[in-house]
């Protein structure tokens, strides 16, 4: 770090890494993630099996400094668990400033953190990088959305939280007529339905071309709950193949935004 970091492939700094840390924890359902520093911003992606792909996206304007060399691709695999722990090294009650450095391909990712309330301490972390795995292309360009809903994140979180945990499968029913949006789960001998009509305050917008009944693994939908808890708004899109996309927006105080998205593959009927 004593060297001139202007030739580094990627450098960035932030006044407080707290929100970034929460966002990364929200997609931390796998040990490692693919770290990608794009000119527009930072994106980390995680996959579970071939069924769920989640990403955290932090646009460049969230950083006080953000620099990616335009002649290189900064993309590598890194331990998400370690990255999240390091960002949280001073505890969640503390705002700590963050600096990130990535010298060149094969270098470790370097983090330097300093808490705002204690000036006499700092932490530096070196996290080794690896070659990234290839990511699934879950959505083809020709695919269109059959249904799109905009929901208050807290409301969707409450609905998901209300679903019986022991159920395996969650059935999503979307229809142009009331009750519009229904979640059904089946227990041993029972059945539970949650209906959200279009007129509800919960649905900020709703459009649906035709009736759709799709099944997803409840476990996959529950993976979104941490992200829902820290976000303000979520857009649900259902494509013609049944691929579900949840796009979550986290609004920060200073009008900056961070995003997370989840692609979930439906269960196919046998």
């Amino acid at each position: 770090m004593a060297e001139d970091s202007s030739q580094y492939h990627f450098t960035a700094s932030m006044d407080s890494g707290k929100t970034l840390c929460s966002l990364l924890k929200a997609i931390q359902f796998q040990e490692s993630a693919v770290f990608c520093a794009l000119p527009e911003g930072l994106k980390l992606t995680v996959e579970e099996g071939k069924c769920v792909q989640a990403s955290a996206y932090i646009p460049a304007d969230n950083f006080t400094e953000y620099h990616v060399r335009d002649d290189v691709d900064v993309i590598f695999k890194i331990s998400l668990a370690v990255l999240a722990e390091c960002l949280n090294i001073f505890g969640s009650g503390e705002e700590a400033s963050l600096k990130m450095y990535y010298k060149c391909e094969g270098s470790p990712l370097l983090l330097v953190l300093q808490p705002q309330s204690f000036r006499n301490v700092m932490t530096d972390c070196e996290i080794w990088s690896q070659t990234p795995d290839s990511m699934l292309e879950l959505r083809s360009p020709e695919e269109t959305d059959v249904a799109k809903l905009v929901v208050r994140a807290g409301a969707l979180l409450a609905v998901l939280g209300d679903v019986e945990r022991s159920a395996d499968v969650l059935e999503l029913r979307l229809q142009p007529e009331p009750p519009h949006f229904t979640i059904v789960t089946y227990g041993m001998q029972d059945r539970s339905c949650i209906e959200v009509p279009e007129c509800s305050d919960t649905l900020q917008s709703f459009s649906c071309e035709r009736e759709l009944t799709l099944k997803y693994q409840l476990h996959h939908l529950r993976l979104c709950m941490k992200a829902l808890a820290i976000s303000n708004k979520v857009v649900l899109r259902c494509s013609s193949t049944g691929l579900l996309l949840l796009q979550l927006k986290l609004e920060r105080d200073d009008n900056k935004h961070m995003f997370s998205e989840f692609y979930i593959v439906p269960l196919l009927d046998d």
Binding site: I78, S79, V82, C86, I89, P108, N120, V121, M122, T123, D124, C125, E126, I127, W128
Partner: peptide, 14 residues
């Protein structure tokens, strides 16, 4: 020293 990382926290002026 972890599998894939090295972390150091430094306190000074003690």
């Amino acid at each position: 020293r972890a599998d894939m990382a090295k972390v150091s926290t430094r306190f000074k002026d003690l």
